[in-house]
Design a protein around this nucleic acid. Sequence first.
DNA 1: GATGAATGAGGCTTCATTCAT
DNA 2: AATGAATGAAGCCTCATTCAT
Lengths: 221, 221, 221, 221
Amino acid sequence: MRNPNRTKLRILRIAADEFAKKGYDGARVDEIVRRCKVNKNLIYHYFESKDALFTAVLEQAYTRLRERQQSMGLEASDPIEGISKLAIDSFKHWGESKNFIAYLNSENLFNAKHIRKSKLIRSTYPALIESIRSLLRRGEEQGVFRSGVDPIDLYISISALGYHFFSNQSTFSVIFGKNFSERGMIEKRLNNVVDVILSYLQFNSRAARRPRSKLHRASRT
Amino acid sequence: MRNPNRTKLRILRIAADEFAKKGYDGARVDEIVRRCKVNKNLIYHYFESKDALFTAVLEQAYTRLRERQQSMGLEASDPIEGISKLAIDSFKHWGESKNFIAYLNSENLFNAKHIRKSKLIRSTYPALIESIRSLLRRGEEQGVFRSGVDPIDLYISISALGYHFFSNQSTFSVIFGKNFSERGMIEKRLNNVVDVILSYLQFNSRAARRPRSKLHRASRT
Amino acid sequence: MRNPNRTKLRILRIAADEFAKKGYDGARVDEIVRRCKVNKNLIYHYFESKDALFTAVLEQAYTRLRERQQSMGLEASDPIEGISKLAIDSFKHWGESKNFIAYLNSENLFNAKHIRKSKLIRSTYPALIESIRSLLRRGEEQGVFRSGVDPIDLYISISALGYHFFSNQSTFSVIFGKNFSERGMIEKRLNNVVDVILSYLQFNSRAARRPRSKLHRASRT
Amino acid sequence: MRNPNRTKLRILRIAADEFAKKGYDGARVDEIVRRCKVNKNLIYHYFESKDALFTAVLEQAYTRLRERQQSMGLEASDPIEGISKLAIDSFKHWGESKNFIAYLNSENLFNAKHIRKSKLIRSTYPALIESIRSLLRRGEEQGVFRSGVDPIDLYISISALGYHFFSNQSTFSVIFGKNFSERGMIEKRLNNVVDVILSYLQFNSRAARRPRSKLHRASRT
DNA sequence: GATGAATGAGGCTTCATTCAT
DNA sequence: AATGAATGAAGCCTCATTCAT
């Protein structure tokens, strides 16, 4: 009957949902208790406090993200294919774990209070960034990517294009009067995101489209 | 001394700050009272409830955004210049009013509960989207922009690249071990954002960079 | 119907009783609420916390003690009479406000945590000590008191003889199998206390009782 | 490694410390568990409950006190020497086991709830009181002590003068602005305590100091 | 015998809001 | 118009103790 590990995981799972749906401040320990059907104190037995519980939720989410990143196999990829894969996977990741978006929004409100303390979380990104750097270098060597692209900046752009879309689905739906949760909308967005990223990397300013008749300046820098 | 309107504005200003710093759930009416040095009932006199107060804050933020959009003069611009201006201004807007980001994050958590009710807010975007559509059309006609770009989607991309950066400054700083609030970082990011957007619009897949020696496929679909 | 001041005093009165009966840790805010028939939050409206409430109770008790001390008129008294009065009043004070004893016991457990912060409380004793010093000086000048008595030490002795008796009434009753709360016991104790104090002050070691036949040393230093 | 008795004693020792430092209500079973590094059930195995554990602590303290009393050898002493010895030892006992003071303060708060049940504790005092009675009788016969002194009352006075000092060290230090834990202060106090007690016993009201010039009444009734 | 998971009751405190003056 | 007293519901957390393995 007793299964400590399962109980702990159940708490974590339901807490993850509660924090995602209501944010850190809106989440209710009592609600987690109610849904877990565990004694309230058990939560404090396993996790020291609401803060610690949230940190555990965050760490779990990051752990999954990291596993996902590691299994992508960017190292071996052809540059364009690799970046595509990354952009697609990043987009899908945000779409599939909107929870994560909610956690991050909470976390940013609190100035990264919880993440800051977690060594595990801080160690999630370096490997990915190195993969991207390698892809960029190879792309540049092969002449298919522009040079001078910062991998962190690129990662942020990739993230941004997906994250923002999913994070703001509700407000966008209201503001633009369309339903941004529809399958079609999402797929269209995914294509555009990949397009934006690859265009940026492949764009050759000298070969750029030019005004048909009169010459304008094509660059704005 | 008594100036009803000024008092109301003071409440609104301080509430805006409180909601931005703590999120909807974290914000405290009592704290607003304390900082405003007004009587608590006055808040309930001017703004029915915490919800209504937050709605008022949101509306004020949207009103300012709309004014900003209207004064940009995109209509008359050259397409590339216009989009640049839009991207730059959007980026700066997010950077200058991070409050707004916090409101939107709260709002998205609650499924756009407050925005949904506000007619004023829903009417903010149409004009802007039309401006973008016009810029895109002109750019296409002039042969400088690709065709088939959806203005809403483009707007979302533009927003995303700035919003995400500012929204996640704290977590990025922790995760990547750099200070993303530094002036230099922000300027660099702005350049990249504009570059990404213009590259996307100007990119000509047929004229794309190609692998130096062996021919690879250049498209990624 | 509303009477803020009375409400506040009612809370204070009942809190005083609760803290006295159960000690700081044993006292229950909920019990105070129940007995006061006020809303729980009202307690926090007037007194910031349980700690602050206890501090308020302590300050009230000290204020009363100080008033009592000031109205004794030790200054004008004949030395023996003055010290008698002081001993009697001190004894009666402990007997009448056993609450105070409980507060002090709590306070000593917490290393004077609350008293330490209260300026009011720290300023209670100086005047009294000066009165005692004056009495001792006059008694010495008149040749009725021994010399070299430290007023603080004397005050502690006076306090001790009463405080200890009342503080330990329960345990003494059990240990010695007598009821130490009886009127007769208390009066007898009072007489003894005064006797002890005055004997100490008046005792002349050279005039001391000496062994009837053989000479023993009378001092033990 | 397993040594049931030693474990039990360790629990008792640490519990004694915990109860002394925090009082009964403030003491935490979990804290004792933590510090003992024993399983929580073991505490409940050896000592039925927190109450029973406290009773055990009390009994241990009383047992030690009784042993101390028995080894003093008051029976054989010269009266003055005997009382001195008793006063000194009592004072030192309170000074050395301030724990005991804390237990008694807790106990008095609860109306001697635990002591009341313990036969062992109730049997601690009779022998001592008989020793005092004998000393007083002998002193009286020898003409060095006043007559009519009640041994229990005397014992209470002796106790009081030391107990009160140590029990209130913290509050006295704050109130009088001196450090009452200093070695010098303690020694001075000890001398005074013995002086007070012996003066009281030896004082001869007829031989009392009298006003130098004018005759005042020497009695204070 | 030994471990720590599990419990239920209750602890202090806080919240948005309304009421009496 | 303005003040702050008052409310009820809930929030997070902790306690001594017991149960299952």
